[in-house]
Design a protein around this nucleic acid. Structure first.
Lengths: 332, 332
DNA sequence: CTGAAAGCGCTAACAG
DNA sequence: CTGTTAGCGCTTTCAG
């Protein structure tokens, strides 16, 4: 009967000598089927090695059984951790996750997001690479909810799940100021990145509140890698008036700063945004603006599923709290 | 015309005043369509905000446009890195990746793998959690290729992409022996894990080749976390005859061992399997059995696509080479 | 170059 | 409790 490889429900029905609909009922666990028939159908399913085609099922029923997660950079541990959390929530709901990465490219983001929509995902968690997501307007209107993650979306009204970047940076800088530091450096990446401007702003806010102004010579931007951050830190340390403290706006900057500070045992207090592996093993104590990365994914997934379940309240922004914690610092 | 939300190709055809088939041709870029009609159809597509339903397309055509990646533990950076590499290859082929995690549970693995097959993935990359994948026999026979990753599968003939665990551990131990170490400890996780028994075997092989036998008191197993590895290392250091070197069979063990060794500045040479973030910043030089994690994913994806493209040669095993490298060790 | 008809494998509606 | 009939949205024949 089966012309092309896999057995279908029609084959099972023929084999079991029942109707197609009875097979469907058995497979979907619907009530009101005679026990003997259930037995017979199950036997045929096993004998033929039948597996239901989920694509056909969802085409007909219109149900969605996957969600999309479009990261900005899947090679970044941060997004991967988020992705794992999203996946856990989804699987708990019997759904699976299609993941993709825009590689921080706005055009890729658009292509991939629309591609996911063509696959009729039930919803989309999106880390914006570009600043305009209005191209998703049609999909959202047609009932595919979108939740922005890590960065707010543009041109589209949607939920967003963000780290409290500004609050965390503010707390870090305020603490350094309270500790009496006069010269505090700031190492950060490109100001075109949302999280970077937020963290810088938190840093500056703390100065403003203390009635202070940071030395512009100590604010270094465009540090994309630990190596560039290390070089920048080395220059600061060798300058005439080196900083007594440094705030690193992401973990790549922190690692780079430490690569400059530790070998020369420089007397500089270090506070960094983002935790990292092995921070515990550092030979000196540093402060970290920490947060629960996985929770970001969990919250995003839960918001998305709430929308899928029909929540049509006004789009909201969730701010993930941060905490200042100690890392490293064992006695040598 | 559109009763339920999204416009369909029928709607586009009606709007453009052409047949359904013409719309299909335009959308799929098939030749032999009048330029004026293409124009008209594209205008209608834009006006209606049409997006093709990829599910319906692949149901009818039988084509597959996703592959499945089933990791053993998506919260582990290793699998996440692999996943990212797989995704990159897939997207380069216009396919997307559905990811899931069995959480090291054989039953979950089975459920999720079969679920992915029900979604008609074009192929499956699988990190076995259990030791029997014969349940996939039917799917493989029906044309869904499977590639095992990190661990060989059981009960099913399939390609496998593995790290050269034994060779890497062998090289590490041989080097320590050449360096004259008499007492070399081995810290590892459960022997029920494939990679662990392979690495232990490589370690033991090196001893055998040198005509030596390791002290059983220095071989510690079942270290699942850095904390337990740290405790084990502390006990070894405080014993009557402490080791002069330690080989840690995974990065959790390495981190734990360092947490014991660094604070007391113990004179123990450290070699670890698996690199880790921040290994560069360590205050002392250690040796690492390193390998290209992403490449593992790339190779697995390429093997899978070769199968999808019809390669029906005998299943093969790919062994990813390892390299001994220095980490850490800046001048204090 | 274009179109009408059939059907992928399943579920939904409505009968019996 | 069971079966028959449509039809999801698209691609694939096969005719014009």
């Amino acid at each position: 009967m089966r012309k092309s490889g896999r057995p279908t429900m029609v084959d099972v029905a023929a084999d079991a000598g029942v109707s197609l609909k009875t097979v469907s009922r058995v497979i979907n666990g619907q009530p009101n089927v005679d026990a003997a028939l259930i037995e017979r159908v199950n036997a045929s399913i096993a004998r033929l090695g039948f597996h239901r085609n989920a694509l056909a099922a969802s085409l007909r029923s219109g149900s969605r059984d996957t969600i999309g997660f479009l990261a900005a950079d899947l090679s970044n541990t941060f997004y991967l951790t988020v992705a794992a959390a999203v996946s856990t929530v989804a699987i708990g709901r019997g759904m699976q996750v299609i993941m993709a990465s825009s590689e921080e490219d706005a055009r890729s983001e658009r292509t991939l997001a629309l591609d996911l929509c063509q696959r009729r995902v039930g919803g989309l968690i999106l880390v914006p690479a570009g600043d305009d997501q209005s191209y998703l307007g049609g999909e959202v209107a047609a009932g595919t909810p979108v939740v922005f993650l890590d960065r707010p979306g543009g041109g589209l009204d949607g939920d967003a799940v963000l780290i409290d970047n500004r609050g965390g940076a503010h707390a870090a800088a305020a603490e350094l100021l309270r500790d009496g530091h006069e010269r505090i450096a700031l190492l950060f990446d490109s100001p075109s990145i949302f999280t970077m401007t937020e963290r810088r702003q938190g840093f500056l806010d703390a100065f403003a509140e203390a009635g202070r102004t940071p030395d512009p010579a100590l604010l270094v931007s465009d540090l994309h890698t630990p190596a560039t951050a290390r070089d920048a830190m080395e220059r600061l340390l060798e300058a005439e008036h080196p900083p007594t403290a440094v705030f690193c706006a992401n973990n790549r900057s922190t690692i780079g700063a430490l690569e400059a500070i530790l070998p020369r045992d420089a007397d500089v207090a270090v506070t960094g945004f983002d935790d990292f592996e092995l921070a515990q093993v550092l030979p000196r104590r540093i402060r970290i603006v920490d947060y629960d990365t996985a929770h970001l994914g969990t919250v995003a997934a839960e918001m998305l599923f709430a929308r899928i379940d029909g929540d049509d309240s006004h789009p909201s922004h969730f701010l993930l709290p941060t905490h200042l914690v100690d890392r490293g610092g064992y006695i040598r």
